[in-house]
């Protein structure tokens, strides 16, 4: 039975003179290495150059603020439920008087942590979020020296007012339409007649 067509007949024939003095073979080998002198190196000088990545690349998360700068997250826990890697944990708190500018709704996430070592960057949290609060961005997660440093709290996740992050690439009309689908869990729990991203009165 023939498994592959790579079988070779082995023979013990004497070496020819050209093979015995090895010089032709050596020159051939040197020609091969010399030809590589003129080939382009595929190396990317990492910190200075980066690989081109897709505009919808799923990298480090961001917790968005709304246009007035209030945090959108209401600590509903949909993302934590949706997360297949169980990387997200949060603690909710009630908004006090005078904090209206900080948090958009009466409830907010006092603690919001994502374990970046657990996260598989699948984007299900973003899909599950009814408040358009969490998004994956095209940023890469930094390297750290300690395991504990990979648990990102709100200090790293919440968008800074001075450097807003554009996630419009991930909010195409198709995506917004998809989120209204009745089959999705958050649409069953919340009133699906309300417009998404507009904020919901309790």
């Amino acid at each position: 039975m023939q498994l592959t067509n790579r079988r070779k007949e082995v023979s013990h024939k004497e070496q020819s003179i050209a093979e015995k003095i090895y010089l032709p073979a050596i020159l051939k080998g040197m020609a091969i290495t010399a030809s590589h002198l003129f080939k382009k190196s595929p190396t990317i000088n990492y910190p200075e150059e980066t690989r081109p990545i897709a505009p919808v690349y799923r990298g480090q998360h961001v917790l968005k603020r709304d246009d007035n700068g209030a945090e959108r997250c209401t600590a509903c826990g949909m993302c934590a439920v949706a997360c297949p890697a169980e990387a997200i944990t949060m603690e909710s708190a009630e908004r006090k008087k005078g904090e209206e500018a900080l948090y958009r709704e009466e409830k907010y996430a006092a603690v919001y942590e994502i374990n970046m070592l657990r996260c598989i960057f699948c984007g299900l949290c973003e899909e599950a979020c009814p408040k358009e609060a969490i998004f994956l961005t095209d940023r890469l997660v930094d390297t750290e020296f300690e395991r504990g440093d990979f648990i990102y709290g709100k200090d790293k996740l919440v968008e800074k007012m001075t450097e807003r992050i554009d996630v419009s690439k991930r909010q195409t009309p198709e995506v917004l339409e998809f989120k209204k689908k009745p089959g999705l869990k958050h649409n069953e729990l919340f009133d699906s007649s309300k417009q998404l991203g507009k904020g919901k009165k309790h």
């Binding site: 290495t33 010399a34 590589h36 002198l37 080939k39 382009k40 190196s41 595929p42 190396t43 000088n45």
Partner: peptide
Amino acid sequence: AALLQDRK
């Protein structure tokens, strides 16, 4: 050596 091996 790097040039011969397509490195930098």
